[in-house]
Nucleic acid binder design. Structure first.
Lengths: 132, 132
DNA sequence: TTACTACTTTATAATGATTCTAAAAAGGTG
DNA sequence: CACCTTTTTAGAATCATTATAAAGTAGTAA
């Protein structure tokens, strides 16, 4: 399994559940956005048994902390995650309530002129809301 | 009262509760960020009686819909609102869990090159995460 | 003023995502 | 295998937010 090493390197034990979740998240052509609820559905479709909801939460948070997933800052009752961890931004279609990737080349360079003493910029995220 | 007209113009009846919430939100030198919980505390400090939690939620949502408040897109268990409705962005200090305004002049122009058929850009919001 | 209607407030219950708990299971190492 | 630590798990708990439905209030027109 290609994910065993990846997990070990991060200090995460490659358990059955984590490996299966890796397959659902990362064995795809395209990256995608998901909520925990979406992910549980995907897992149930792919596997013939369930992974405990608590484990899904634990795993997603562990993966996020290790940088394998990104949270998307958006106001919603559910938290959205992204398997695309490259530096990029999002459209949010307000009507369809759907996120669309904005590749880095779709957005001009962003310059932040203000500085806060003792703080470093960790990330810059742009959310472009769309209406009809 | 200066808010009576404002509310009437928006099609919102100027009720006692709405006017009092207006005073807490808009009778200030500076704009500020808040959660519903923060707002309830401010109301309780300023007034000697309480406004029902449901009313605070209703009012904040009504004001947001009318454009007197903006939601700040950020991942948090609580929803953050901003009394600064001008076009501007935010720093988010991850350690302190605090939002800091980025005035428009603090951020260079943002160019979005991608277009989605039939959709218009409603807003462009930048969240700059800070770490130590 | 009064009567009427629509809108608003309110306490409380319901919802639903997320987190917590603590016991059972599994991974890693000697 | 034996041991210890990490992980999984079901279920309970938490907590922000929304829904409900009854009582109150604003606006209006006679």
């Amino acid at each position: 399994m290609k994910y065993i090493e990846k997990l070990r390197k991060s200090g995460l034990r490659p358990t059955k559940q984590r490996l299966q979740i890796c397959e659902v998240l990362f064995d795809t052509e395209r990256t995608f956005h998901f909520t925990i609820n979406d992910l549980v559905k995907k897992i149930n479709e792919k596997l013939n048994h369930k992974i405990s909801l608590a484990t899904v939460y634990n795993t997603v948070h562990a993966f996020e902390k290790k940088g394998y997933l990104k949270q998307i800052p958006i106001n919603s009752n559910q938290t959205y995650f992204d398997t695309n961890i490259s530096d990029h931004h999002h459209f949010y279609d307000l009507k369809e309530e759907k996120l669309i990737d904005l590749e880095n080349s779709d957005v001009g360079p962003i310059n932040i002129f203000k500085k806060i003493d003792g703080k470093k910029i960790k990330s810059v995220e742009v959310l472009v809301k769309l209406e009809d």
